[in-house]
């Protein structure tokens, strides 16, 4: 097993003959009357880092819990390599997951925490020391987790996920509590996993900017529903958006329906359009004989796009049918 640089030869996943794809199909979870997750379908590919994004309460953790077999979907399925979590052979060595950095007994030392799960997964105890070194916690190994900072807990959570040298990694808010140095370290580690090892990496976050330099693809959800799935670069292309001013915004909204772009009225009476180019909007307005007073590319950042995509819907945002 390699030491030092995370992602040394010892970190390469064993070829277990599984593809490592994560697929959600119509995942739905009801808590009483509340639809926490609502018909969610998406896929996560091996060899890439995928960001699972959405505001707090969007249903990210519930979705991950369903994929990981901790929660039973009301309907729909979540699979890893084509099977549900419960049907994976040796899940401890196939999938590594962290659901919030809180899964520790405060009185147990970091090393003992890992040794408990070494035993459960049938791994040798020295594995605990290896992963502690990889995440930089060797010095803290013999101290109870009680005294750990949030960043240290994140590292220990990651260490737990890495115990079985898994092909598939699901990390819930892994950057939370890490200092900038820690975030850079995490970025390097995850990129290595995806680019060099070809592992599947899914990381959730409620802040796009936190992960935008790490991820290739994004799955964005809000209120339990899929908002956007695809390459981050494509979202960036669409994110600039279009700002248009017209005396007849309703007619323009109607004309824009075939574009499947998101149309939002702005405070000054103009419309913001995400998911379309100024050229496309101009042509549609011309074809529909809608008078335009202004047409320009928007200047919103990726983060603004994210916020707009996931914002609570208010009555006038939907184009009239």
């Amino acid at each position: 097993m390699g030491t030092g640089v995370p992602g040394g030869s010892g970190l390469s996943p064993e070829s277990t003959g599984i593809d490592g794809r994560i697929v959600a199909t119509g995942l739905t979870k009801l808590f009483g009357e509340i639809k926490a997750v609502d018909g969610l379908s998406f896929s996560v590919e091996p060899g890439s880092v995928t960001g699972f994004l959405g505001p707090n309460g969007a249903g990210k953790t519930t979705t991950l819990r369903m994929i990981l077999g901790l929660a039973t979907p009301t309907s729909g399925t979540g699979t890893i390599s084509g099977v549900t979590y419960a049907h994976l052979t040796d899940p401890g060595r196939t999938v590594g997951a962290v659901l919030e950095a809180t899964s520790f007994h405060p009185g147990r030392t970091a090393r003992n925490h890992l040794r408990v799960f070494c035993a459960a997964a049938g791994l040798p105890d020295k594995r605990a020391d290896e992963v502690l070194e990889w995440v930089g916690l060797t010095q803290a190994a013999r101290y109870p987790v009680r005294g750990f900072s949030l960043g240290m807990r994140q590292r220990l959570g990651l260490a737990t996920a890495l115990l079985g040298n898994p092909r598939v990694l699901l990390l819930d808010e892994p950057a939370n509590g890490l200092d900038p140095e820690g975030i850079a370290w995490l970025r390097g580690l995850l990129r290595h996993f995806a680019d060099v090892d070809g592992r599947t990496v899914l990381i959730s976050s409620h802040v796009l900017s936190e992960v935008e330099q790490t991820v290739d693809r994004v799955v964005i959800i809000a209120r339990g529903r899929l908002i956007y799935e695809g390459r981050l670069a494509d979202l960036e292309g669409a994110s600039a958006g279009v700002v248009v001013r017209t005396p007849t915004p309703d007619s323009l909204s109607t004309a824009l329906v075939p574009l499947h772009a998101k149309v939002t009225p702005r405070a000054d009476g103009s419309l913001a359009i995400v998911g379309a180019t100024p050229e496309a909007v101009g042509r549609i307005a011309w074809e529909a004989h809608v008078e335009l007073h202004e047409l320009r590319a928007g200047s919103s950042s990726l983060e603004e796009t994210f916020l707009r995509l996931t914002a609570e819907p208010s009555a006038p945002t939907e184009p009239p049918q």
Binding site: L68, G69, L70, Y85, A86, L88, P91, G92, V95, A97, L99, E100, T102, S103, F104, H105, P106, F117, A120, A121, T160, G164
Partner: peptide
């Protein structure tokens, strides 16, 4: 303390 999570992740049975 949510140690139930890693426990049932390693052994889903």
């Amino acid at each position: 303390h949510f140690t139930s999570r890693p426990t049932f992740l390693i052994e889903p049975r």
